[in-house]
């Protein structure tokens, strides 16, 4: 893949290093993600995928290295230095979690409104205008509700808008978490194993939703174990093993890479643990 002359990369990770005490979880990792694409990070368990995610979304501060995000308007954000909440608010990076993190005791609609907190807060004049019920705030709230309805309609949960999020079936919770992240209107959406625990039908729906999100201009960064989905929807795949990048390229190239095959199937001492992910799944 060659870099277009005019447009810089959306996300540029350089020499990223993350150590926990003596353990190096991510070791001099460099990769780029292009605007408007689905970039997948794959690798065996413990390869450091989620650690990379946590560095990008500000939950970990990397030991060294830089993570640079460039907006379409040219604004640049150093994600490795930005404060936790600014990653979403300023840089426009949203994420979902490996184990779903919804506000279980709040309704589906409330979950989506919390995601629009900053916009609503600004419209409410930090509470003052909303306290007196000003028209401007009411309009902003109606817009927020409309946006929430749009996403609920898209993931087919409009009828359950007033149910607590914790009462939804697992697959719906996963989709709601994506909708919630999208309600922050991000330019980069990071998904940590969105298909984990979904049945084939739900996985298919999820793939369609992700392609739709990409078509609307939001770039995606994806960690996934479901190779079928990864190969189908990704534009670009990065393979990690033991914190290092072992392969990087379009799906067809990665699939054929002998290093990837040996990382998944294992060689020598750790072969037995790794065989669970069979070749068949990869194809």
């Amino acid at each position: 893949m060659t870099k277009p002359a005019a447009m810089p990369w959306l996300l540029c990770v350089e020499n990223l290093m993350m150590r926990f005490g003596g353990l190096t979880a991510v070791d001099h990792l460099s990769f780029n993600a292009e605007r408007g694409q689905i970039t997948a990070i794959i690798g065996p368990n413990g390869a450091g995928k989620t650690t990379v995610f946590n560095c990008i979304t500000g939950f970990y501060r990397p030991t060294s290295g830089t993570i640079l995000l460039t907006h379409p308007n040219g604004a640049e954000y150093r994600l490795d230095q930005l404060r936790g909440d600014h990653i979403n608010r300023r840089a426009g990076v949203a994420r979902t979690f490996q184990n779903v993190r919804l506000f279980a005791g709040m309704t589906v609609l409330e979950n989506l409104l919390v995601a629009q907190h900053n916009r609503l807060m600004a419209a409410s004049g930090f509470g003052i205008r909303a306290l007196f019920g000003s028209g401007r705030y009411r309009r902003a709230e109606q817009e927020a509700i409309d946006r929430a309805k749009f996403w609920l309609d898209r993931i087919g949960l409009l009828a359950r808008a007033d149910d607590p999020a914790g009462a939804l079936p697992y697959g719906a919770q996963r989709q709601l978490e994506i909708a919630r992240a999208m309600c922050t209107e991000p330019i980069l959406l990071c998904l940590d194993e969105p298909a984990a625990g979904l049945n084939p039908r739900e996985t298919e729906d999820l793939g369609a939703l992700l392609l739709q999100i990409r078509a609307e201009g939001c770039s995606l960064l994806l960690i996934e174990h479901d190779m079928k989905m990864v190969m189908q929807i990704s534009d670009h795949i990065i393979v990690l093993d033991h914190g290092r990048k072992i392969s990087d390229g379009p799906p067809a190239m990665v699939r054929a890479d002998p290093k990837v095959i040996s990382a998944y199937l294992g060689e020598g001492e750790d072969s037995e643990e790794q065989t669970e992910l069979s070749l068949e799944q990869k194809a």
């Binding site: 939950f59 909440d85 979690f97 993190r101 919804l102 506000f103 279980a104 005791g105 709040m106």
Partner: peptide
């Protein structure tokens, strides 16, 4: 409900 999720939403 969830502090980490709140932070990820900005």
């Amino acid at each position: 409900e969830d502090e980490i999720a709140s932070r990820s939403l900005g």
